[in-house]
Simulated assay, not measured.
Amino acid sequence: MTAVTLEDIEEKQAQLEADHARIGQLIKQFKEQPRATEYRVDAATIPLAPGERLAGPIYAEDGTLDYYLIKLPGDGGDLSHADAIAYASGRGGKVPNRREGRLLMANLGDEFDKVAYWLEETYEHNSAYAWYQYFGDGGQYYGHKSAALRAVAVRRFIPSVI
Rank of each mutant, 00 (worst) to 15 (best):
D78M: 10
E17G: 00
Q25P: 04
G143C: 03
D62A: 08
A3S: 07
M105F: 14
D42R: 09
A82P: 01
E52N: 03
Y68C: 07
L48K: 07
H125F: 15
H144A: 12
E120F: 13
V154Y: 01
S146C: 05
D113A: 12
M1A: 08
T2H: 00
I162F: 07
A84E: 08
K71E: 07
M1N: 04
S80E: 08
L69N: 08
E52W: 05
G138Q: 10
P57R: 01
F30H: 06
D62C: 06
I46P: 06
G24W: 05
F135Y: 12
R53N: 02
F135N: 10
A43Y: 08
E38D: 08
Y129C: 02
M105T: 02
G51C: 02
K71W: 13
S160G: 11
I58A: 06
A106D: 15
Y129V: 01
G63C: 02
G74M: 04
Q140P: 03
A147H: 12
A3L: 08
A130K: 06
Y68P: 09
R35E: 09
F157T: 10
F135H: 04
S127E: 12
K28F: 05
A43M: 10
K94Q: 15
A82Q: 14
I27F: 11
L103A: 11
F30V: 03
S146I: 04
D110K: 13
Q33W: 02
P73C: 00
